[in-house]
Nucleic acid binder design. Structure first.
Lengths: 353, 353
DNA sequence: CTGTTAGCGCCTTCAA
DNA sequence: TTGAAGGCGCTAACAG
């Protein structure tokens, strides 16, 4: 064993102060009285290691408070033990949306039993987006979960072509059938919401749609449409929103101006519904008396509005957790069938409708 | 130059399909007609590199779409080019709070001009927390930003002792004066809020306090107290909340039961204020007629309540951005003075008070 | 079951 | 200004 001066003296940082020297495998092995390889084997799986050696290594690890150097390990295993959460959207909108928080929570839960770290990738447009793409393509992570995906970020194609293990939260645009994803049945949700309004006696039902370059926006709108068609009602009263409260408020103003006689509104998100409520209050329309309102998501805001919102419970956390687990399976298990897992939204009735 | 078979054939993944082979520095150098060292120098800073060589390397990089392998680089530079955002809280609460979204946005903005990645560390209690601590201590990141820090997670001490560059968002408990942090003047904010209620004619002013094991909770409470003392009013009517809407609602119920004659409420967060509004409505108390309400944060929810909340604008994004920039400075600049940056919250008057 | 031996891709002295 | 050579800490054959 060559005596290495480096391992004797603690490293000295820029400041000139001694820095705690992270223990290496070498030191663990030495302390355990075994070779590096044996120590390594004891750490990874422990196969073909005698109980004695295993115990010695375990003890050394505990005493030294050792953690493997990820960089060194990555270099040889060609795995990074990290996955990316890709958010292809610049603005505060996404981050502020409780939907995003739910996603984070679900994925974190899925990753929890592993030692895999979550790297956040906010993929701004243009030049920035290219940087993100390159980062992903050059395998700086073992896989990616994409959330809040829009039609024109070519993320689905790019990631599909790259063969980087990827799972979308929410149906991707292109390459469907070939790209793994989890989703809720948004069309069904939109239909349920609208049917609830119909059953409650509404006959002039408007919708505040989400962004139509997102699958969720499109699908919920389609659900609203099909319920109205089935009931023989008009599907004229549609205004686009952007999933934000302000957008919902603006859309409501437009709806009231164009269709003053509406008696029901299906908003494609609770945030937009909240915006609608405030505008309706300002216009002196009572809810649910004059106009009934149904939202979508039930991620917290629905209970803090006045009146509380009837809405569809969007199982975001469960869904994202499934996405995380699916990704884990893809990473460790290699390619396997991509059967999208579809969750269902449930109607939660409160005062607003 | 030894001919390496590996670089000729694309790697084959588990699935048996060819995988895109990430280009290496070796390939860039070969293509540019220079040595690895020159290529490396051209990539990092470009000092002592002839314009011709520089250009050749740049071209090769572009053609190959090359990105340095972070693991290999980390191994030798002993930097990871990643920083952690540490959230020492298990529950959904934190993630759902718009405060967290703001933090994320601010830090992301600070990191944007660099190539540093953000790693999310959700530090659950107990065993999990130890794993997080070890991860941090063993320098798997170059630095850390800690948000939503509680008294009993010993994060401040641990991180301070470890000498890992760290910045707290919100005043840490221990080691103050020695640990870098950014904060808003919460006591001042609490005072302003309360003074607004006093000026509006309230004389029996309650507060819904935040968690008292968090600096923000404590400081806002202190501000409320001092304003009341100054005005010669009672500071009896206090109920604890937990920064959530549900907690705010419960606290309000308790307040109304114990102090039925209150005419003003200062809630230490908008979420709690929203909960208060719904309870007040249920009890038939009009806002601001019977009871005036002031919240704290103005991160979106204040405008979607009925009535919209008078509140204190908490500059979370700016503050977190400052935290990120401070961290960057600490990482690159070595130890430097720790002058906490204190931001100020501004009163935003809306209908509720 | 264990130790020896080679690199993983990159940066960095050291000579030229 | 450039290239050759060594090594960061770890895993993975390959012998024993």
């Amino acid at each position: 064993m060559t005596d290495d001066a480096r391992s004797a003296a603690p490293a000295v940082g820029r400041s000139g102060l001694t820095m705690p020297h992270a223990p290496t495998l070498e030191e663990v092995a030495r302390r355990a009285g075994v070779s590096r390889s044996t120590a390594s084997r004891a750490i990874n799986g422990g196969l073909k290691v005698s109980p004695a050696a295993q115990a010695a290594v375990d003890a050394a690890i505990a005493e030294l408070n050792y953690t493997p150097n990820r960089a060194a390990r990555s270099l040889v295993t060609r795995r990074t033990d990290s996955v990316a959460l890709v958010v292809p959207e610049p603005d505060e909108r996404v981050l502020t949306d409780p939907y995003f928080a739910g996603t984070l929570q679900g994925i974190t839960a899925a990753l929890d039993p592993t030692d895999i770290q979550l790297v956040l990738l906010i993929a701004r447009r243009g030049e920035e987006a290219k940087r993100t793409t390159r980062y992903l393509l050059n395998r700086h992570v073992d896989g990616a979960v994409v959330v809040s995906h829009h039609r024109d970020d070519a993320l689905d194609q790019v990631l599909h072509d790259s063969r980087l293990p990827t799972v979308f939260v929410g149906r991707p645009w292109a390459a469907a059938g070939d790209v793994a994803f989890v989703d809720v049945d948004n069309e069904h949700g939109g239909r349920i919401a609208t049917e609830h309004l119909i059953k409650a006696g509404c006959t002039r039902i408007a919708t505040i749609a989400g962004p139509l370059d997102m699958a969720a926006g499109l699908d919920r709108l389609a659900g609203w449409r099909s319920a109205l068609h089935e009931a023989g009602l008009s599907d004229e009263a549609m205004a686009r929103g952007d999933f934000t409260s302000a957008g919902g408020a603006a859309a409501t103003e437009r709806l009231l101006a164009a269709y003053p006689d509406i008696d029901g509104i299906f908003a494609a998100s609770d945030l937009m519904a909240a915006g609608a409520l405030s505008v309706l209050a300002r216009h002196g329309r009572s809810v649910p008396g004059d106009i009934k309102v149904v939202g979508y998501d039930d991620l917290g805001v629905a209970t803090s509005t006045a009146p509380p919102l009837t809405t569809l419970r969007n199982p975001v956390v469960e869904m994202s957790r499934a996405a995380g687990e699916l990704l884990l399976a893809k990473i460790t298990g290699g390619d396997q069938e991509v059967v999208p897992r579809i969750f269902h939204a449930e109607l939660v009735v409160r005062e607003s409708a």
